[in-house]
Design a protein around this nucleic acid. Structure first.
Lengths: 105, 105
DNA sequence: TATAAGGTTCGATAAAATTCGAACGTATAT
DNA sequence: ATATACGTTCGAATTTTATCGAACCTTATA
């Protein structure tokens, strides 16, 4: 059973996690990536190069790392190939409505 | 009737508006303000000083201006007194699910 | 094995956001 | 009318993000 303190901590972590997600989404490139992934078929895996980003590869890598660090995507690294996959179910489970909110853009 | 181009423009503006909102929410102080307002009773108006923020008044003013500029709150300025009100219905109309998403934090 | 093709990391630079004090403006109260 | 309280604006300093080239690493291919 959770004490008041634990519940409060949960709440804080939850808000912190949401803050991280909001920070990650608060950039046009990263928002576009997530919107694209949401509108893809469920479970789709996409090459990092398939989003038509017009930035240097170091910058692209930076943005994908950020999205991965906050849990928006999982990143399959095969050294040569890099695939991005939306963590759809996990996100819907933790923050119901987030996917739907971003799917209408 | 909307042409394809107009629909595309709408889409882009919509995403731009959402990007602005995400940027506004991507700061702990501003997120806390909005979460507090959401959990208040509908239509509540609150003094800017009632959120317990520990920043200088210039900083506080800056954050509230940002929230107002992206349409998250309306700002009633009486010279002396400053009240903040969540634009709940308008936001729910334009971005269904946003209020609900932030109400569970 | 050697070569090429991607992706990541590092270091430096540029751009954006945050913060605050000071000056100013506006309303309320004495 | 004067003083006080509160909010905004301005300017500067600090901090955080974003960006890119170069070097490096890993896999695939000749």
């Amino acid at each position: 059973m959770a004490s008041e303190i634990e519940k409060s901590a949960d709440k804080s972590n939850r808000q912190g996690a949401m803050l991280g997600i909001l920070k990650a989404l608060a950039h046009p490139i990263r928002l576009q990536i997530i919107v694209d992934l949401i509108n893809d078929e469920n479970g789709a895996e996409r090459h990092c190069t398939s989003f038509g980003l017009t930035v240097a590869k170091a910058t692209r890598s930076h943005h994908f790392k950020l999205l991965k660090d906050v849990g928006l995507i999982s990143h399959i690294d095969r050294g040569n190939h890099s695939l991005a996959k939306l963590r759809r179910e996990e996100l819907e489970e933790e923050f119901p409505g987030l996917m739907g909110l971003l799917s209408n853009l």
